[in-house]
Design a binder for these strands. Structure first.
Lengths: 150, 150
DNA sequence: AGTCTTGTTGCAACGCGTTGCGATAACGGC
DNA sequence: GCCGTTATCGCAACGCGTTGCAACAAGACT
């Protein structure tokens, strides 16, 4: 067994994505290449519109529907995940290394990551008492941050 | 002291709303009357589009912008609250008798209320460790319900 | 290199929700 | 009952995201 096949944790192997797509009967297209270029350059949390803008910067002919459809595909592959930030707008998270939710301040809009450990008690409680499996990666908790409560 | 002035808990005193508005320098209009008629008839959780449709059933001339703007006002008065359900769409909750969040199944779309007690440990932890004040009424947790997990 | 299959694209149209603005009307004061 | 102030309305336009559909092209096979 070779250890070389293990991916460095927390780093998407962008180069391998075309293969992953083809292995599922999906295709590697110029538009997808542009999108992945953009995603590779964006860290953390980005809105859908940010991503579309980024693509248009490279290829002005970029169409929103193509971007959003490809993001769906990438989400199925586990390369991005999305949740809903302020105003219910989509917020994508690139390369979700571990399950985690987000804390969003409804006043200033800043956001923080929420570790799995922090929500574990709640998740387990809902699991036991209601049989409900929380999608931690999708979880967004709104409220007011320490600064804004000043 | 008369006990008659106490509102029954969990029941919005619709008749008092015109006064509440005027007390704040706001106005009581036919359009707002229609909206409140609709809300009074809708129980639990409704989407913005449902509310607009309901208003149009009474007055076909109803304009979405008016409805949404009035819902904002009502939210400030504490008569409705909103959170984001599936697809990030707005979901209004009429007469929020107590703070509570929602559990939404991303598979079947059904939702359940989450009592304050259930989330208290998490809320207190975020309060202590991060100074973050969770807006429990706005909280929506997505995942898969017991039925859908089969 | 040519052919075939079918995943993808771009377009146009839609749905939900928001915003800016001029016109209207609620309501407090006379 | 009339008047003035200004909150609210309706409209038009926008922004984000989704969907249906016909045309296109990626990739497998020969």
């Amino acid at each position: 067994m070779s250890r070389a096949t293990a991916a460095p944790p927390g780093a998407t192997r962008w180069a391998d994505i075309p293969r992953q797509l083809r292995a599922r009967g999906l295709r590697w297209t110029p538009q997808r290449r542009v999108l992945l270029d953009v995603l590779a350059r964006m860290d953390g949390h980005v809105t859908g519109a940010d991503i579309v803008d980024g693509c248009r910067a490279i290829d002005p002919a970029t169409t929103p529907s193509t971007v959003y459809r490809t993001l769906d595909v990438l989400e199925e592959l586990g390369i991005v995940s999305h949740s809903h930030g302020r105003e219910g707008r989509q917020e994508f998270h690139v390369n979700p290394s571990a399950d985690h939710g987000h804390l969003v301040c409804s006043s200033c809009g800043r956001s923080w990551e929420l570790t799995r450990a922090e929500v574990t008690p709640l998740v387990e409680r809902l699991q036991r008492r209601r049989g409900f499996a929380v999608d931690v990666d999708h979880l967004t908790i709104e409220g007011r941050c320490a600064d804004c409560r000043g």
